[in-house]
Design a binder for these strands. Structure first.
Lengths: 103, 103
DNA sequence: TAAAAGAGATACCTTACGGTATCACAAATA
DNA sequence: TATTTGTGATACCGTAAGGTATCTCTTTTA
């Protein structure tokens, strides 16, 4: 999944909360809706965006749809962020950082 | 800076590219505008959002404004993401992960 | 000192976004 | 079988987001 779809999926606080909720395990659309102050249709929209972003997978079981966290989908995000670790003072001293960049 | 403002700031690809550009060092609004296919006003808007999100700082020098990357602003994001490391198979084995969650 | 350059502010436009209401449909159940 | 339940899809609404055009202000510079 592209960098952009994942970042976009994480931009909304409700969607981040959905991911946190799913860290407890698979949940149906109904179960998720009970945890959020909005309609099922709204939750469903968020789920689609999260799935497109590669952050969750879904499978049908009878009339229910189970949504499962896909932690690997966070990789494009953590990868992008990792580049900036070199500029982070708490990771490297200023001197070390300057040294790395000059070489 | 709040979790949300930082996530929102990172949601736009142009803003992420601006941060990457600033990893080369401080840049003026004009210098940044030369690197992106949009007007100075548009770049400026992105800079404001990035500054509100705590991802950069700016200072005036004469008639120019220098924009500097603030890597520490990424901390709320990396902190939020860190929670999901425990669900990442490449970090822990499945068995270990199950074990951790049951206890 | 007059003109040019860098920047901020604001009005405005179009589209994307988050949300609800509603309809339709398949699966479980009384 | 009739009905309820869980879901998907779509139309619609109000607001936020990304962008341009334009005006103004301050600082350089010719």
């Amino acid at each position: 999944m592209s960098n952009q779809t994942a970042f976009r999926a994480l931009a909304d606080p409700t969607r981040r909360d959905i991911l946190t909720a799913l860290s407890d395990g698979e949940m149906t659309v109904k179960q998720l809706t009970e945890r959020f102050p909005m309609t099922r249709a709204a939750v469903k929209k968020h789920l689609v965006i999260l799935e497109v972003g590669g952050l969750l997978t879904s499978r049908k079981q009878g009339r229910e749809t189970l949504n499962k966290l896909n932690p690997e989908g966070l990789k494009p995000v953590t990868d992008w962020l990792a580049y900036f670790d070199q500029f982070w003072d708490t990771h490297l001293t200023n001197l070390q950082s300057v040294f790395d960049k000059k070489d």
